[in-house]
Design a protein around this nucleic acid. Structure first.
Lengths: 124, 124
DNA sequence: CAGTATCCAGAGGGATACTG
DNA sequence: CAGTATCCCTCTGGATACTG
């Protein structure tokens, strides 16, 4: 297998900021969202992780951050061109999940209820 | 944003087994690989994590596991149809990374050397 | 409203040893 | 060679409080 691309594949995870990065990229499809809107829209994310992940994405040039020096403050986030391109891939992954979720769930059930003595997984 | 799909996006990570899942799926493109071949091919993965992640992928029906009852034992892994479909998406991600890595690196550098007093990131 | 800092629990994941 | 079990540590990430 290609060592180059292996390293490349690893870069993906380094740049999308772990567990929440792709979710944020996904949420930002709408166009532009405020911090509080993202916080409300992404279920389960904490204030801290939203800030932290957003920083990472901004740092890598996947999202833009616009601060309005008003009272109270207002900060808006949106995808850059690179971010939008990434989002297309996220869409692909979602599509894949949508298409295979039933099969996966079934496979999981089969696996969990399988006999210790393997029914058909052995060759020789 | 769509709550349904938000949950769907989360399923992706639940099924690919965290940090190593996609890397394994990527490695298995070749066709069929033994445990030791995977171990050698995926740089940095530990014996434990390879076993553990492989179990998860097998459980979800993304890889098949074939045991040859020989001495010494021999176990081969390969992608199922669902696994191959997933791999196509991983390819897309790699392609994205390949295309944007330079820009990302540059953006990162810019961000890290930016003035505390924002040069152009503020609107109002 | 948005961001930063601190504290702390729990999951993730490595090293090692043992089994078949 | 492949897999399981155990120990232990790091690092993630949540809760909370404070600043602008």
């Amino acid at each position: 297998m290609n060592e180059q691309v292996d390293g490349l594949a690893r870069e993906i995870f380094a740049h999308v900021g772990g567990r929440w990065g792709l979710l944020i990229v996904y949420a930002l499809d709408t166009g532009t969202l405020r911090f509080s809107e993202l916080h409300a829209g992404i279920d389960g994310i904490s204030h801290k992780m939203l800030t932290q992940t957003l920083r990472g994405l901004e740092r890598d040039g996947l999202v833009t951050r616009t601060v309005y020096p008003t009272v109270p403050p207002k900060v808006e986030y949106s995808l850059t061109a690179a971010g939008k391109a990434l989002r297309a891939n996220v869409d692909g992954m979602c599509e894949w999940t949508r298409r295979h979720l039933d099969a996966i769930t079934a496979a999981r059930h089969r696996f969990d209820t399988a006999e210790p003595g393997p029914p058909g997984g052995v060759a020789g």
